[in-house]
Amino acid sequence: MIDASHLAILQGIGQQTILQKGDFFIREGQVPRKFALVQSGLIRYYYQNDKGIEFTKSFIAPGNVLASYTSMLNQSPSLYFIQALETSTLLEINYKSWLSLQEQDSYWDKFLIRALEKGYASKEKRERDLLLLDAETRYRNFLLEFPGLEQQISQQQIASYLGIQPESLSRIRKKMIG
């Protein structure tokens, strides 16, 4: 997504950070002032309701941009949590530094558009799947889209991503095995 010379420019204004498993990049309610490129590890975006129930929005793998973008853009509190599911290395970019860089070189406008398009396409697919597909099909698609992830994260997190209860996921898994 980004060539070596432009990555070097980002590294020049950014800061490499390591999040340990369970650490937060941002918490719900915080006003974000940075975004990041995920270099290694695995990240989860999730919402939490007033009863403490979590709803996984997405999983972010290396090579992707990490941000509470709308909140960063509007300088408003984030509506969700961004948490490391395993030790993760990030290149954090301060938003004000980013805006300055973006003004200097139109490459960064194109970079931003590509990142937003990728995020939008993923969001559109996820919404369609949640609205039109049954839980078993969503689970099968999860296994195809995220090979090996099932061994890295909890069944609760998978169920919350699929929009089902853990008990329903257990039934689906048993049915698929049997």
Rank of each mutant, 00 (worst) to 15 (best):
K174F: 00
I153M: 08
L112H: 11
F55A: 13
Y95L: 06
N64R: 11
Y95C: 05
I53G: 06
R173D: 06
A61S: 15
D129V: 08
R173E: 06
S168T: 11
R27M: 11
S97T: 12
S78K: 00
F142C: 10
T70A: 13
M1N: 09
L42T: 01
A135I: 02
D134C: 10
L169H: 02
L101T: 05
A115H: 09
S168E: 07
A61M: 14
Y95Q: 08
K123S: 15
D129F: 10
Y45Q: 10
I18L: 13
Y80M: 03
A36F: 01
D134H: 12
F142Y: 07
K175G: 05
G12H: 03
A8Y: 11
I26H: 03
Q152A: 13
D109N: 14
Q83W: 02
Y80K: 00
K57Q: 09
G22F: 00
P77M: 00
R171L: 07
Q16P: 09
L99D: 11
W98K: 03
H6M: 11
Y107P: 01
L10W: 05
Q102N: 13
G41Y: 04
L112S: 15
L10G: 04
F35T: 04
R114K: 14
Q30E: 14
Y120N: 08
L85Q: 08
Q152F: 04
